[in-house]
């Protein structure tokens, strides 16, 4: 296909080099302003839907759908996945959180394109190789899925949503997340700095 000189820019092709000024990424929004925006979105979810935000549930529904596609017998034999497959007339992807996370992708893309922050790349510290970083990202993702499954929700569905509703379990969960992350941070500092 096309030949582009700047390999980091496959996703966000530069218009031309004379637009160099346009290419610089905008700084992040003030955290308090972004937080108010996020809080208003959460409030809208409460008022319109009577539920909060979430993320891990969408990945769970997607896993149930994909497993059912490849090995339907296995998917139905595991209660954790079979919960999504009980109604044969509808797809597990016909789920509120799945559509919400599709929106999260779109919203993230819109914001990042407006701020010129779309770049193909890997986020890591200077002392770790890309391969190790990708392996750790996968492992961290797997751990997060297990943690969210045990706790019945992730940072969005539990900490953020339940936090605003003063849900007892959500505050317990939130404090544990920070405790777990701070407790381990020292041992994985080589990955980030």
């Amino acid at each position: 296909m096309t030949v582009r000189t700047d390999t980091a820019d496959v996703l966000a092709a530069p218009v031309a080099d004379d637009h160099a000024a346009v290419r610089e990424a905008a700084p992040y929004t003030n955290p308090y302003l972004a937080g108010i925006g996020l809080g208003l979105v959460l409030l809208a979810a409460f008022v319109i839907m009577g539920r909060g935000l979430g993320a891990s549930g969408a990945f769970k529904a997607f896993t149930a759908w994909a497993t059912n596609l490849v090995a339907p017998g296995y998917a139905h034999s595991r209660t954790f996945l079979a919960d999504y497959l009980s109604d044969p007339t509808t797809s597990p992807l016909n789920d509120w959180l799945v559509f919400e996370v599709v929106g999260v992708f779109a919203g993230g893309l819109i914001s990042a394109l407006l701020a010129r922050r779309v770049r193909l790349g890997v986020e890591k510290g200077p002392r770790v190789t890309t391969g190790v970083r990708l392996l750790l990202a996968f492992g961290g993702g797997a751990l997060s899925a297990v943690g969210a499954a045990i706790a019945r929700g992730c940072t969005s569905g539990q900490a953020l949503t339940g936090g605003a509703l003063l849900n007892l379990g959500s505050w317990i969960f939130m404090l544990s997340v920070f405790a777990g992350a701070y407790g381990l941070a020292y041992f994985v500092r080589g990955e980030w700095r």
Partner: peptide
Amino acid sequence: GGLVLGAGFVIGG
């Protein structure tokens, strides 16, 4: 679950 997710957070980013 919180401790495990916290660990996943700082390992996975």
